[in-house]
């Protein structure tokens, strides 16, 4: 194996609702050490579910029904509970969308960061305390000793997200998953948090999986991008290539929405994920639909750019 820190193969996630909803339908990708991967798509396309699945953490009634997730070669999906616990928070960590509800409201933030150290082998209390202070300084919270005694509600949204990032980086994970990390924040704060994420992952060498509905955020931070539609990857490649020469009509529509003059939403709605989908899932909304679209398209192209579309080939 090369230096892949995360390998996902044929991931399927299903929600045991009535009728069952298959939110992720065969997603696979690899992430190299230090790489920054963006995942984009409309809401409900399976990107957030994939994010939580990467830690084996899908909320019930959701369940990973198929696939493989390897973090630094260690398979998560067949791992024993204790091994899985040991990997979470040390080798792979996650930054959640809403830092207010995602932090324990009745515990001081210093304690919350310290817990992440305590249960991943930091036995000496003094060194834990020093590490907490160091982390708080690292994420740009001044006066860390005082901040460590604050409760989440005493901090601003941006500061809370910095705390979240400090927790995520506490054990210098190889992979950092960030699910819409700035969606709950102001635009100015958003820029600072993104810069911080870039800076810190560069320093610690962590690879990052950034989930965002905002293509501009991905363009700014990431090297590579996956475009999700209806629980599948419809286009993937380097940010430069995909954003400059989008091959999939859906990617084009998204880009138009984010950067173009035509800011109207894409007509139609994503397909019902509780049903079987044959052929290209985007076809019903696609203006360039052809007869071949009733067959399943496969991801094709070169390493730096692949697309699953019968119409728009990679150029």
């Amino acid at each position: 194996m090369t230096d892949a820190v995360l390998e996902v193969r044929d991931l399927h996630v299903e929600f045991a609702t009535d009728p069952p909803v298959r939110a992720v339908r065969g997603v696979g990708f690899t992430l190299a050490a230090g790489e920054r991967l963006g995942i984009v798509g409309e809401s409900g396309c399976g990107k957030s579910v994939t994010a939580t699945a990467l830690l084996g953490l899908v909320d019930p009634p959701g369940r990973i029904v198929e696939g493989s997730i390897r973090v630094r070669g260690k398979e998560l999906l067949s791992a024993a509970a204790a091994d899985l616990r040991a990997i979470r928070g040390s080798e792979i960590a996650m930054v959640f969308q809403d830092p207010m509800s995602s932090l324990n409201p009745v515990a001081r933030i210093g304690r919350q960061i310290e817990d992440v150290l305590t249960y991943h082998g930091w036995q000496d209390r003094g060194s834990r305390r020093r590490r907490v202070a160091e982390l708080l300084r690292l994420v740009g919270l001044p006066d860390p000793d005082r901040r460590a005694r604050a409760y989440p509600h005493e901090l601003s949204g941006g500061m809370r997200q910095r705390v979240m990032i400090a927790m995520a980086l506490a054990n210098e994970p190889a992979v950092l998953v960030a699910d819409e990390p700035t969606t709950a924040l102001d635009v100015t704060v958003e820029a600072q948090i993104l810069l911080l994420l870039e800076d810190l992952t560069a320093r610690t060498g962590a690879a990052i999986v950034l989930i965002s509905h905002d293509l501009r955020v991905v363009a700014e931070v990431c090297d590579r991008v996956l475009v999700f539609y209806a629980g599948r990857i419809v286009e993937e490649g380097s940010v430069d290539e995909v954003f400059a020469r989008p091959a999939h009509p859906y990617t084009r529509a998204l880009l138009e929405l984010a950067f173009g003059r035509d800011r109207r939403a894409i007509p139609g709605a994503p397909p019902d994920l509780s049903s079987m989908i044959t052929g290209c899932a985007y076809a019903p909304r696609c203006s360039r639909r052809i007869a071949a679209c009733s067959d399943d398209p496969v991801l094709e192209g070169r390493d730096s750019h692949r697309v699953a579309c019968w119409v728009g080939a990679v150029r």
Binding site: L57, R85, R88, G89, F96, S101, S102, Y119, M167
Partner: peptide, 16 residues
């Protein structure tokens, strides 16, 4: 609640 999911995501043991 979401903060419990966070704790799980950070590998805090279930008994804790």
């Amino acid at each position: 609640s979401p903060h419990i999911r966070t704790a799980r995501a950070f590998g805090i043991p279930e008994r804790v």
